[in-house]
C-alpha cells in the first residue's frame, strides 16, 4: 500500500507544519513515511512544495504524474503542482489567492478553476477564507486544508481522523483543532453533496 501527497503553497503558509503532522501521525501508527521540504532562500514567500510518501515508498521525491493527492493552499500554485497529480487523482484546493507582487497578467481565480476543470482530475475546493474569518485567525489555512485532506477516503483509510485530530490539538492548540474540524466537515459536506468538479474520465 502506498499513498503519495504533494502539498503546495506560498512560503509562510505553514506547509511544513502540515506535513509534520501527517508524518507524526504515520509514525504513531507505525506506517512508513518519508517527507521532503525546502528551507532557506526558497522559503521567503516563494513557491513551496512538500512531498509526502507513505507506505511502500523509499525515495523522498514524488514523480510528476504519480501523486495520489495534491493539496494547494494557494490557488495560483495549484497550476504548478497539478503536474504531480496522477490521472483521476484528487486536487484539494483552497480559495486563498495570493498573486506574486509586481507582475502583470496573473491568472484570475475563475480562470484558474476553469483551467483545472479541463484536466482529468477530481477537484474539491475548500472555502478557507470563510473559516479564517469565522475564527478570526489568518494563520490556520494549513490546518483547515489538513482537515479537508483527511475527509478523502484514500487518506482516512490510512490516517484516521481521531489520530490526526489528537496531534493537531496537542501540538497546535484548540483554535487549530477547531479549524481542522471545520475543514474536515466542510469537505465531507461537499463530498456528500457531490459539490466537486470531476471530469467524465474519472468517477467519485
Amino acid at each position: 500500500m502506498k499513498l503519495e501527497i504533494v502539498i503546495t503553497g506560498v512560503g509562510g503558509q505553514g506547509i511544513i507544519t502540515m506535513s509534520n503532522i501527517i508524518g507524526a501521525a504515520c509514525t504513531k501508527l507505525g506506517i512508513n513515511v518519508i517527507t521532503a521540504e525546502t528551507h532557506g532562500m526558497a522559503q521567503r514567500m516563494g513557491s513551496v512544495e512538500v512531498f509526502i510518501r507513505i507506505g511502500e515508498a523509499c525515495a523522498p521525491l514524488v514523480m510528476p504524474g504519480a501523486a495520489d493527492l495534491v493539496v494547494a493552499l494557494e490557488m495560483i500554485e495549484s497550476l504548478r503542482a497539478v503536474r504531480y497529480l496522477k490521472k483521476c487523482g484528487w486536487l484539494v484546493i483552497s480559495n486563498i489567492y495570493l498573486p506574486p507582487p509586481g507582475l502583470d497578467g496573473v491568472p484570475a481565480r475563475h480562470d484558474i478553476i476553469n483551467a483545472l476543470t479541463q484536466l482529468p482530475i477530481k477537484m474539491l475546493q475548500i472555502d478557507v477564507e470563510n473559516i479564517m474569518e469565522k475564527l478570526g485567525d489568518f494563520r490556520i489555512s494549513n490546518t483547515v486544508m489538513l482537515g479537508a485532506l483527511i475527509a478523502i477516503d484514500e487518506v482516512s483509510k490510512m490516517l484516521p481522523l481521531s489520530v490526526v485530530e489528537d496531534i493537531v490539538s496537542q501540538s497546535l492548540g484548540s483554535t487549530n483543532r477547531e479549524a481542522f474540524l471545520m475543514g474536515y466537515h466542510q469537505a465531507l459536506e461537499k463530498l456528500g453533496k457531490r459539490d466537486v468538479a470531476i471530469t467524465n474520465a474519472c468517477t467519485l
Binding site: V10, G11, M41, A42, Q43, R44, M45, G46, S47, G65, I76, E77, L79, R80, V82, R83, L85, P99, P100, P101, L103, G105, V106, P107, D111, I112, A115, L116, Q118, L119, P120, I121
Partner: peptide
Amino acid sequence: NDPILRPPPRSPV
C-alpha cells in the same frame, strides 16, 4: 497534467 494556463513565476521576495 498540463493545464492550459501557465502559472507566473513566484520567486522568493
